[in-house]
Design a protein around this nucleic acid. Structure first.
Lengths: 234, 234
DNA sequence: CGCGGATTTGACATAGTTCAATTCGAGTGG
DNA sequence: CCACTCGAATTGAACTATGTCAAATCCGCG
């Protein structure tokens, strides 16, 4: 059986996925579960590119596990980080209406993904209210994220870091659990490029917050000890 | 004839609009020109609000003439300008997937608009490829604009102002005409809040550029005398 | 255990802010 | 037509958060 046969006869992984009720993929497959619009699961390693700026924008990617970094390289040659994608997040959404991707995406660690063909998504938008609504919701969510970034970059270094940490906490499954721990999947310099700060500044902010007993951090691991204080800062 | 009759029997203004081939409105009305999905033209005065943060997001607005400012008021009480909308631009697009608007929009000068009911737009996305494609294109365009803003705010004050001016020039009908003149519809302080600079800084940059013979400015009017130099700066 | 990149710390430089003072300019009324 | 007014814009001077460069330290991995 060659790849084509496999694609046309296999059942999309979404049908048995626990997230099918909220995921874009769940709206992509028909409810009877018979057709396969070409959804594929894949895994990429740390450092691998999912796609690059100017590549043909042929798919959206939903993160199942791991972490991605979205970035562009400016005319002056330095990397500008536009965002990180963790579980449930979508990469490539901003290119659904254009022929090519406008930014590059690479894995910060081994990452598990679902690949949704852009053509199938656009096609299904017309047949399924669910798909249309989930997609519009996802896009509005991305607009919110960008507005949030814009807001954060208009704040002080301390507020940027605090705001980032709060966002990470809020995105966690156990939203308001006692133990507030985060494992930061990105390096200090990636974080700095995301917040538009010098790595040294990010570092200094972390130490300052540590001195004030707001958090404790060692490398990628970060324990928030005074969540209220952090929220007040942001 | 009451308002309801007028709405159901009138023909949408899009049918005779010169921009129907590129505008979202042109895709909203059916090709036979019989139904009216509720498109309305309206005019608002300088300072009037089109909508405010938290209002029910019931429509998109296409600018036919004039100028709008999109902004939010931060927790600290200061106004953050997220963008300006001039002819052909769309306001409210980022709220198409949410029940309420996430920002406020007001007129910088008398402004002519078309109001497209959000429900009709969402509905028509499913019946018309044209509508779907124009909408996705408009959204990707808005993503580009936000990415551009992020990039610009990571540059020096001079680059921000130059970049802004270049964008304004590029958006003009006579894209590459000899005479490069712009009439800035917004105050220096609105521009400053948009670029995330102090008004004083914006002012200083303008004088500096004038001293270097890149442009001449008096109030709202601005003549670019060295377009190449401006592009190089940005 | 030791290497090399990542992170942290320190000292100094600077772009942009802030606050205060001055000038400009569009309306307004005599 | 000109003076007057008041907000907007510009200019000036001092201050500060953050960047830059360099050195020290940490940490994961072979």
């Amino acid at each position: 059986m060659n790849a084509q046969h496999a694609a046309s006869r296999s059942v999309a992984p979404c049908h048995e996925c626990s997230r099918r009720e909220s995921c874009l993929g769940g709206a992509l497959v028909s409810e009877d579960g018979l057709d396969n619009p070409g959804v594929q699961r894949l895994v990429i390693d740390r450092g691998d590119h999912l796609f690059r700026e100017q590549d043909a924008a042929e798919a959206l990617y939903v993160v199942r596990g791991g972490a991605l970094k979205t970035y562009v390289v400016s005319a002056e040659g330095d990397e500008e980080v536009q965002g990180f994608q963790l579980s449930q997040d979508i990469a490539g959404l901003d290119a659904l209406g254009t022929p090519t991707y406008r930014n590059s995406v690479r894995a910060l660690s081994r990452t598990w993904l679902c690949r949704l063909p852009a053509a199938a998504v656009r096609e299904r938008m017309m047949g399924s209210e669910r798909m249309r609504d989930r997609l519009l919701a996802a896009m509005s969510h991305e607009f919110d994220r960008l507005h949030g970034m814009l807001h954060r970059e208009r704040c002080s270094a301390e507020q940027r870091v605090a705001g980032f940490l709060v966002t990470q906490l809020d995105a966690q499954p156990n939203h308001d659990a006692e133990k507030a721990e985060i494992t930061l999947p990105m390096s200090r310099s990636d974080l700095a490029r995301y917040l538009d700060l010098a790595t040294e500044t990010v570092s200094r902010v972390f130490t300052r917050l540590q001195d004030r007993n707001v958090l404790r951090t060692s490398g990628a691991h970060c324990v928030i000890t005074d969540r209220a204080a952090l929220s007040n800062l942001a």
